[in-house]
Design a protein around this nucleic acid. Structure first.
Lengths: 341, 341
DNA sequence: AGCCGCGATGAAAACGTTTACGTTGCGCTC
DNA sequence: GAGCGCAACGTAAACGTTTTCATCGCGGCT
């Protein structure tokens, strides 16, 4: 059995209250007894019981993160950004992921009750109704890249529209006219935004939209590439909804004996680390996932600190263009991303 | 204020005990009252308070993971493996990372007390003395890739020795004789094991050891490559202690106008996803990090289940050879790793 | 009819903390 | 030297559960 505050109190000949005061630095103990209590606590290796403490203080110093998955660089970066910011605030991180269906996500949500001070949510199941139903009321929550109708919760998401605009402008400036788009999984909000932005750009410049199906995996990019090569009037550029599909598409183009970017330019979205290592290096839209996580956590802690509810802002994190050779950008030697980036 | 079990009891005209019994399915309630309690609980959106519950049940259904960092594919995969296995066992995951010094790691360790049922530890600061000092006694703990003297804790680590042996054998079979080794960060246990295995293999085959410094980053691999090319009698193969350095080294060789693998063969260690996308694709040692995490968690839950301590086994997870073009392996089209892998 | 057993229920203790409040003892001041 | 204030410390309540134990009511047995 673990050693409790009572054991320390008995051993130091004081009450539990004094032990608590001493160890938490609340004052009200003489320097002499403080020293004695400290000594006993260290000797007994006393460590306060987190659950008991947070039961009375109503603070867990922990935030929960509800994610759809953990696979791939996106989530890796997201968690890292969240964790870094959380650590800076002295918070712990309780992750919950891979809930396949809404019921499982609901269970995960409910299990968070009493274990976290706030919640970061990114989930395909998380519409406003779902959250209202399953979220313990009064728990500060921030949504990441998640659709919301109504402004019940604060939300952050990446500026897909701005990113696509930059990229399309770059391709058009490069003289490309027949620009194809490879879609992602249908219910994905980011995909929908990117496609809408693509269509808008195409329309604004009087171009013809060419849309191919995809599912975010490399293979679907390869298949899309094959379809695209078989078209009667071949596109001279491809924009894939994410980098992995762009890489798959590049493989298809290369396998067909065509050159990138001379015959067809290729671009992606995300700037996964791999993008700069493929040949030719991939032009893409850079969205700092880690920063998204960090900003979300900062927003959450702000909400936790304030007793009063803050206005439910919907904040966007910027996306930037990263030009590499796959779209005819100048040759640059691949450089590792700095650790803090 | 959140709704508690008392609110449900009052609303349903029963005692809190009955609510607890009903909601936990302990029986001892008539079907009638059970239904009534369920209805009230749902209507009030009652969710039991985790801290309060685990205070009395002494179970948190959470495991903690103490990691040195979260950056890069290694930790991403590790966390994913742990999370997947944890979820299968109905456990949550509390991660704590990036503790720069021992004091911070100690604080993190102590903060886990009362919030987790067991601990997964991978930390450079975690020697046996450190753990004995800071770990709340009686908390089941499993070490991952962490040096231990004495057998106080169960441990898992990757079979660096076996992996290196396979790789060296492959290079030697390919006719390579002057095989250089690029080191990693000095205090890293994996690095030490890989280097020791390299030296042993070199000695066994009567070859000359060639060791260059490195720090696991791509840049250090590039520098090592430059050094290696400047040597009077050039090596005909390089084995880097991890993939990123191997990739950096390949860049240096390519920049010098030499061909891989014809002039110099290159191999790495880890099989990061990127390894199959670089050109030429990188021969490497595959260690399933996710599996390491999974096995560690399984071992931990076993320890949690058993009241009695299990024997402190030191378990190895296998490493396998992945032959690609950088060592003269046959050309294979890069295929995405299956999601479950 | 009285008793026994049993299933349903409630009262209360327990988990390990923090903290409001009460008590003690001491050194001042008048 | 009595009263007062204040610092140090202890007592006990509180947090929200689970669980043990006692109580109650009721049907079946002798």
């Amino acid at each position: 059995m673990a050693v409790t505050i009572k054991d320390v109190a008995r051993e130091a000949n004081v009450s539990v209250a004094s032990v608590s005061r001493a160890l938490n630095g609340h004052g009200g103990v003489t320097a002499d007894t403080l020293e004695r209590i400290r000594e006993v606590a260290a000797r007994l290796r006393y460590v306060p019981h987190g659950a008991a403490r947070s039961l009375i203080t109503r603070r867990t110093h922990t935030v929960g993160a509800l994610l759809p998955d953990l696979y791939g660089e996106f989530f890796s970066e997201l968690i890292r950004g969240i964790d870094l910011a959380a650590r800076a605030q002295g918070l712990h991180l309780l992750v919950s992921s891979s809930h396949d269906d809404a019921a499982e996500a609901a269970a995960a949500l409910r299990a968070m009750q009493g274990r976290v001070d706030g919640l970061l949510v990114m989930s395909p199941h998380a519409d406003a109704a779902f959250l209202r139903q399953n979220l313990p009321m009064g728990l500060p929550t921030v949504l990441m890249n998640t659709v919301l109708d109504g402004d019940d919760y604060a939300a952050l998401s990446v500026d897909n529209h701005g990113g696509v605009r930059l990229l399309m402008q770059h391709l058009i400036d490069g003289g490309h006219r027949r620009i194809a788009f490879i879609q992602g999984p249908p219910k994905n909000r980011d995909v929908a935004e990117r496609e809408a932005a693509y269509l808008q750009q195409v329309a604004e410049h009087g171009l013809e939209p060419i849309v191919l199906p995809g599912d975010f995996n490399e293979e679907s990019g390869y298949r899309a590439g094959e379809q695209l090569l078989a078209m009667s009037s071949r596109p001279d550029a491809v924009f894939a909804a994410n980098d992995m599909m762009a890489i798959g598409c590049m493989a298809a183009i290369r396998d067909a004996g065509l050159r990138i970017p001379d015959d067809i330019a290729v671009a992606g979205f995300d700037d996964v680390p791999m993008a700069r290592y493929v040949t030719p290096a991939l032009t893409t839209v850079r969205v700092s996932i880690a920063e998204l996580g960090k900003e979300a956590l900062l927003r959450l802690t702000a909400e936790i600190e304030q007793a009063e509810h803050l206005p439910r802002t919907h904040q966007r994190v910027d996306a930037g263009l990263v030009i590499r050779q796959s779209s005819g950008g100048q040759q640059v030697h691949a450089r590792p991303r700095a650790a803090g980036e």
